[in-house]
């Protein structure tokens, strides 16, 4: 029950954080839709692990669900990370490049 209450509070939190900015009032529905989309799709993506190991997927899904519930306004956090600032863009580009090369090179070294 406490978790449910927290969920409701966080939705109210999104609403109030958006309505502070008078310009985005009509976009509360959009923010909520984005919130649910991110939540559901990340859980579904975690379920994808079942092709590797069922137990791992159960653990990851439960962990992910709890983590997402407790950090609820995910959409606004993700939005602020995807602004048009060049620094953020280059940061994510470099991180992706590093991860790709590291994972693929050392991952396939022992195939």
């Amino acid at each position: 029950m406490a978790l449910y209450q927290k969920f409701l509070d966080s939705i109210k939190g999104i609403k109030s954080s958006l309505s502070k900015d008078p310009t985005t009032m009509d976009n509360v529905s959009g923010a909520l839709a984005a919130e649910f989309l991110i939540f559901v799709s990340l859980i579904l993506a975690a379920l994808f692990l079942r092709h590797v190991s069922v137990i791992a997927s159960v653990v990851v899904v439960i962990l992910a669900a709890v983590l997402f519930f407790t950090n609820m306004p995910l959409a606004s956090k993700i939005k602020s990370e995807q602004s048009d600032s060049l620094e953020k863009m280059t940061f994510y580009v470099m991180v992706t490049l590093g991860i790709l090369i590291a994972v693929i090179y050392w991952g396939l070294k022992y195939v």
Binding site: T23, T24, N27, G30, A31, A33, A34, L37, I38, S41, L42, A45, F48, A75, I78, K79, Q82, I104
Partner: peptide, 22 residues
């Protein structure tokens, strides 16, 4: 798997961003 990962990210992040856009 790598391509599916990027596909999921593309779908979810872009569509969520477009839902929040004015």
């Amino acid at each position: 798997t790598a391509i599916i990962g990027f596909a999921i990210l593309a779908m979810v992040l872009s569509i969520a961003m477009s839902a929040m856009e004015v």
